[in-house]
Amino acid sequence: MSVSDFPSQSADPAFIHEISQLIVTSLGLDVEADRIDPDAPIYGEGLGLDSIDILEIALVISKRFGVQLRADDADNQRIFSSLRHLADHIAAMRGA
């Protein structure tokens, strides 16, 4: 299933911050969670995460929220394009 299979659901600012904090903590980033721009890229430029970081985030999200982020999902480029897109996807999947 992809997020397009569910009604549009946007994550609220508190949930976006929770995801941001989860990323910072799980990856041991040297940045404060509230300093991450929700609309900036998280992969490559922007936050500067690489594919290994993305895999770690997917694992942590799966454990914390029960949401499976699959490597073969055609929507991954969009899902991981920004913190906001990631949080929106998780919120939509949790609401299913």
Rank of each mutant, 00 (worst) to 15 (best):
S26H: 13
A58D: 13
L27G: 12
Q21W: 08
L27F: 12
Y43S: 03
E32V: 01
A58L: 13
I23K: 13
S10C: 05
D12V: 11
R35S: 15
D53V: 13
D53Q: 14
I42S: 04
D34G: 04
D53M: 15
G28N: 09
E56W: 04
I52M: 11
L47R: 01
P41M: 08
Y43P: 00
Q21R: 12
H17L: 14
I42M: 08
G46L: 00
A14E: 06
A40K: 08
S26Q: 15
S10L: 09
D37F: 00
D30V: 06
V60H: 12
P38A: 02
D30A: 02
E56Q: 11
R35D: 14
S20C: 10
V24N: 04
A58H: 14
A33F: 07
D39L: 11
S20R: 13
I23E: 15
D34T: 07
Q21N: 13
G46N: 03
V24W: 08
G28C: 10
Q9W: 05
A14Q: 07
D37E: 02
S10I: 09
Q21H: 11
E45G: 08
D39Y: 03
P38G: 00
G44A: 05
E45S: 09
S26R: 15
G44Y: 01
D50T: 04
L55A: 07
T25S: 14
L47T: 00
L59Q: 12
A11T: 07
L49C: 06
D39C: 06
R35A: 13
E45K: 07
I16L: 00
D34K: 08
G28R: 10
D53L: 14
E45A: 06
I42A: 04
S51K: 12
A58K: 14
S62P: 00
R35P: 03
L47V: 00
V60P: 15
P13E: 01
I57D: 14
A11N: 09
I61H: 03
P13K: 02
S51M: 14
V60N: 13
L22P: 13
A11Q: 08
S20H: 11
L59W: 09
P38D: 00
Q9T: 13
S26T: 15
E18V: 15
A40Y: 03
F15T: 04
D37Q: 02
T25D: 12
V24H: 06
P41D: 05
S51A: 14
I23G: 10
P38S: 03
I36M: 06
A58I: 08
L49K: 05
V31E: 03
D39P: 06
I52W: 09
G48Q: 14
I52D: 05
A14G: 02
F15W: 04
G46D: 02
D34Y: 05
E18G: 13
P38E: 01
S8Q: 01
G44I: 02
D37T: 00
I16E: 04
S51R: 12
L49E: 07
L59H: 09
A11C: 09
D30Q: 03
G44D: 04
E18Q: 14
E32H: 01
H17D: 09
R35V: 11
S62A: 12
G46I: 02
L47F: 02
S62W: 08
I52H: 07
I42G: 01
S10T: 10
I54F: 04
Q21V: 11
S26N: 13
P41Q: 06
I19P: 04
I54E: 10
A33V: 02
V24D: 02
D12M: 09
L29H: 05
I52C: 06
A58G: 15
